[in-house]
Computed example of a mutant assay.
Amino acid sequence: MSATTFRLERPRDGVAVLTLDRPDRLNSMTAEMFAELEAAGRQLDREPGLRALVVTGAGKAFCAGYDLAAAEQLPSLGALGMLDLQESAARALAAIRGVRVPVIAAVNGAAAGGGLALALAADIRLASPRAKFVPSFVTIGLSGGDLGTSWLLPRLIGPAAAAEFLYSARTMGAEEAERTGLVNRVVPEDELLDAALELAGQICQNSPGGVQLSKRALQANMEASSYAAALELENRGQALLTRSEDMTEALTAFQEKRAPVFEGR
């Protein structure tokens, strides 16, 4: 698809890289970016050969949040106009999070405000040593309950740590982010994208259906009301996958002592 706020590339089979591409504005978000990200998420979700998606930023930042130049117009939108913009932003991040394959955020620099929310929306986060996470919402008179942050952040670092982070709006560096579980690991800056692509490649070696239903189970069971409800969802996914050709191929490959060739069927 064509877009003006990001680049979409496919460096290897089954892997797409979405690079936010407003480096002169630290890849900050606009209404146009929200619309384009939502469209991209929905298109990628329907792409049959996709196995993993990497999201990163051009230049020295991952995403600096909403573009403050555009933010000057927010008070003039009125309540319903602001709600439309907010819902557009929420749909954009939900579309990226909802892509049926694993989403890996390669956080190359600052992830502030909505940029933090975008990083949280990924399934896996890798960070360079220059990465920093800034919940800047309260510093500009907004709530830290924005774009899924108040739901995702406590599940990653715990409620008390999330409260302290959001209320103080302090900056969290890459090393602390790794220690608290906000990011999976920190890798050298010049190796960040390669590390994300290597991880995507490892994912691509596995059963597409198995990975996709694993993601569905992980996301759905974060919202499950009980252990029994989680088991029910898992049971249905496993029963479905045993009917797939990939399951048969995996068993045959094991017996023949070779690597399986998965077709996603």
Score class of each variant (00 low, 15 high):
residue 82 M to H: 06
residue 82 M to E: 10
residue 83 L to D: 15
residue 84 D to Q: 06
residue 86 Q to D: 12
residue 86 Q to M: 14
residue 87 E to D: 01
residue 87 E to A: 00
residue 87 E to L: 06
residue 88 S to Y: 02
residue 90 A to V: 00
residue 91 R to W: 00
residue 92 A to D: 01
residue 94 A to W: 01
residue 97 R to H: 15
residue 99 V to W: 06
residue 101 V to F: 04
residue 102 P to V: 05
residue 103 V to L: 09
residue 104 I to Y: 06
residue 105 A to S: 04
residue 106 A to M: 07
residue 107 V to T: 01
residue 107 V to K: 02
residue 112 A to K: 10
residue 112 A to P: 04
residue 114 G to P: 10
residue 117 A to H: 11
residue 118 L to S: 08
residue 119 A to N: 11
residue 120 L to G: 07
residue 120 L to P: 07
residue 121 A to W: 09
residue 121 A to R: 03
residue 121 A to F: 08
residue 122 A to M: 11
residue 124 I to M: 15
residue 124 I to W: 15
residue 126 L to T: 07
residue 128 S to G: 14
residue 128 S to D: 06
residue 129 P to N: 06
residue 129 P to W: 05
residue 129 P to Y: 04
residue 130 R to A: 11
residue 131 A to F: 14
residue 132 K to L: 12
residue 132 K to A: 09
residue 134 V to S: 03
residue 134 V to A: 05
residue 134 V to D: 07
residue 136 S to D: 12
residue 136 S to A: 14
residue 137 F to M: 14
residue 140 I to E: 06
residue 140 I to K: 11
residue 141 G to Q: 03
residue 141 G to Y: 11
residue 142 L to M: 14
residue 143 S to V: 06
residue 144 G to L: 09
residue 145 G to I: 00
residue 148 G to V: 02
residue 151 W to Y: 04
residue 152 L to M: 14
residue 153 L to V: 07
residue 155 R to T: 06
residue 158 G to R: 12
residue 159 P to F: 09
residue 159 P to W: 01
residue 161 A to I: 00
residue 162 A to W: 07
residue 165 F to S: 07
residue 165 F to Q: 01
residue 166 L to W: 13
residue 167 Y to H: 11
residue 168 S to K: 04
residue 170 R to V: 05
residue 171 T to R: 08
residue 171 T to V: 14
residue 172 M to G: 00
residue 176 E to A: 08
residue 176 E to V: 13
residue 178 E to Y: 03
residue 179 R to F: 00
residue 181 G to D: 04
residue 181 G to Y: 05
residue 181 G to K: 02
residue 182 L to Y: 09
residue 183 V to G: 09
residue 184 N to A: 15
residue 185 R to K: 13
residue 185 R to C: 09
residue 186 V to E: 03
residue 186 V to L: 03
residue 187 V to A: 06
residue 189 E to D: 13
residue 189 E to C: 05
residue 190 D to S: 15
residue 192 L to M: 14
residue 196 A to I: 12
residue 196 A to Q: 08
residue 197 L to Q: 09
residue 198 E to K: 10
residue 198 E to D: 15
residue 199 L to K: 08
residue 199 L to H: 11
residue 201 G to I: 10
residue 203 I to L: 15
residue 204 C to V: 11
residue 205 Q to V: 05
residue 205 Q to Y: 04
residue 207 S to L: 02
residue 208 P to R: 14
residue 208 P to W: 12
residue 211 V to I: 15
residue 211 V to A: 04
residue 212 Q to G: 07
residue 214 S to P: 13
residue 214 S to D: 12
residue 214 S to Q: 06
residue 215 K to G: 10
residue 216 R to T: 00
